[in-house]
Design a protein around this nucleic acid. Structure first.
Length: 494
RNA sequence: GGCCCCAUAGUCCAACGGUUAGGAUGCAGGCCUUUCAAGCCUGAGGCACGGGUUCAACUCCCGUUGGGGCUACCA
């Protein structure tokens, strides 16, 4: 397909919605796989809500996800003169007209119609609210008016083919003569998007299914403007667990892309997850992990689902703050991506936590890589490296209360035993098998189970009750810190 | 209310006229073992309902029910 150009047109409302991010991803994938271009347009015409900070959230989110654009960001507010000019042109060509009926008058007529049992009343032009004479009188007086699009009522059905939902046929009588320009002369969304999409030569519009019903109006506008109608592809929506619309106001941080970044998600995992919601490669292929390049290669707009999907999360359970599958996918990416790919994501976290040491790239590089590779097997987010991981990478051990209770406070002999163990370790070669032999020998001498010492040691060294093999932990933590921590247990308050 | 869209396990996706309806996630159990939000194995759990069409329907058609969207001088 030649000259493909897609766009993402978010409005800066203070956060970047996961649903928007997903359609952005699909638009980006579509452009990339066709060798086309991807445009970012900021729909900032609502001055009340638009701020630079809001715009930055969008730009940062796009950058984090790795969705680069070839054109933009274009600010829709800059195109205002063009939009009003378009309305003037439509007025001149007879595709639009000034309407002097007030909102109140229209509302009244609408209610009366409903009361009379009219099934769906629509504003369809002069005469349906105020007659021609009244219209002319108000025009003469220079009373305020809006500009409405004249929906062709005699013509055929409005038709277009949606790449996801298929052929659409709409009776024009279902479409009201919608407003193009407000009383104050400012353009409305319906006019602005079409103008911009025409001017930017967008060939394929991928967007949320909530726009499907508006598309016929836009098709009419393209035709009236004498512009080619682009291809449309509407994608199903992401809903909340209860099936309602996923919104920041109702559902909080889980809807915002930056939350995932700030909670230690990998952008690769987030992209992968968003692609999996409402989409599948099919062909009986059960594989689920894909990087961006693979998605570009395999993505097929026709296979995007038509049914809304639900996010599963529980605001009251920290472990389920977002969709469980998203979390598990992130964990899988975390432990399977190459260390070279992981490091650029990890380093900023370590630096912010004061855990970074330049020696990690120098004389301690080998140890560092081995330790990261060891601990990431049980980690779920980048954040885990600076919480649980701190005991391995730095000198600070954060003790988990439950772990202390379970493994250290349960036996009053442990402080003495672990100190004794430290003496044995001091005399032993500091290496996995030798440490294990030393510990088992010591346990036997003392007449205690090896497990008591092993679990106590794990918590003494890491503050956790879970983790890698305890002797691997010793090696990772190193001789000095291991001996020190075994001899200096935390206060065992209970 | 009107118009439009959708409907496979709790959730996300496969199967598209003939399969014991498959995978992932989550859940339960087991193994490993010194631990586990790790790994391996096992298990429970689904075609919304009713009519057609057909030798045969998850798959096609119609209806019902349920869910969603749009219906603004919001985007």
């Amino acid at each position: 397909m030649a000259n493909v150009r897609t766009r993402m047109a978010p409005s800066p409302t203070g956060y970047f919605h996961v649903g928007s991010a997903r359609t952005a991803l699909f638009s980006w994938l579509f452009a990339r796989q066709h060798g086309g271009e991807f445009v970012l347009r900021i729909e900032d015409t609502d001055h009340e809500r638009s701020t630079q900070a809001s715009v930055d959230v969008i730009l940062d989110s796009m950058a984090w996800l790795g969705l680069d654009y070839d054109i933009g960001p274009i600010y829709q507010s800059h195109n205002l003169p063009r939009h009003t000019q378009a309305a003037a042109d439509l007025l001149a060509s007879g595709h639009a007209y000034r309407c002097y009926a007030t909102t109140e008058e229209i509302g009244r007529v609408r209610e009366e119609a409903n009361a009379r049992g009219v099934r769906s009343w629509k504003y369809t032009g002069y005469g349906c609210v105020i007659d021609e004479a009244e219209q002319a009188r108000r025009a003469e007086q220079g009373l305020p008016s809006v500009v409405r699009f004249r929906v062709p009522r005699e013509g055929d059905s409005v038709t277009f083919t949606d790449l996801v939902y298929g052929d659409q046929v709409i009776d024009p009588n279902e479409i009201e003569d919608f407003v193009l320009l407000r009383q104050d002369g400012s353009p409305l969304y319906m006019l602005s998007v079409v103008c911009d999409d025409v001017d930017e030569a967008i060939t394929h519009i991928l967007r949320g299914q909530d726009h499907l019903s508006n598309t016929p109006k836009q098709v009419l506008l393209y035709q009236a403007m004498g512009a080619p109608v682009p291809q449309f592809a509407h994608t199903a929506l992401i809903m909340a667990p209860d099936g309602s619309k996923l919104s920041k106001r109702k559902h909080g941080e889980v809807v915002s892309i930056t939350t995932y970044r700030d909670k230690g998600f990998l952008p690769e995992a987030m992209v992968n997850f968003m692609a999996l919601v409402g989409y599948s490669a099919g062909d009986g292929d059960t594989r689920e992990m894909f990087n961006r390049a693979e998605l570009i290669e395999r993505f097929d707009i026709a296979r995007v689902g038509r049914a809304n999907a639900k996010f599963t999360f529980d605001a009251n359970n920290p472990k389920q703050w977002t969709d469980a599958k998203a979390q598990s996918l992130n964990a899988e990416w975390l432990r399977t991506m190459t260390l070279e790919e992981l490091m650029p994501h990890l380093r900023p976290w370590l630096e912010r936590a004061g855990l970074w040491d330049d020696a990690f790239e120098g004389e301690r590089a080998e140890w560092f890589r081995a330790t990261i590779d060891l601990i990431r097997q049980r980690f779920w987010t980048l954040e885990d490296f600076v919480t649980q991981g701190a005991a391995y990478l730095g000198d600070r051990v954060v003790f988990d209360a439950a772990a202390v209770k379970k493994n250290l406070a349960k036996d009053p002999r442990l402080p003495v035993l672990l100190a004794g163990l430290a003496d044995r370790f001091e005399a032993a070669e500091f290496e996995h098998d030798a440490l294990e032999a030393a510990l088992r020998g010591f346990a036997e001498e003392q007449g205690v189970g090896a497990g008591l010492l092993i679990n106590g040691m794990r918590t003494a060294l890491t503050g956790q009750s879970v983790g890698p093999s305890a002797f691997e932990v010793c090696v990772a933590v190193g001789r000095e810190r291991t001996l020190h921590r075994l001899r200096n247990l935390p206060a065992l308050a209970e």
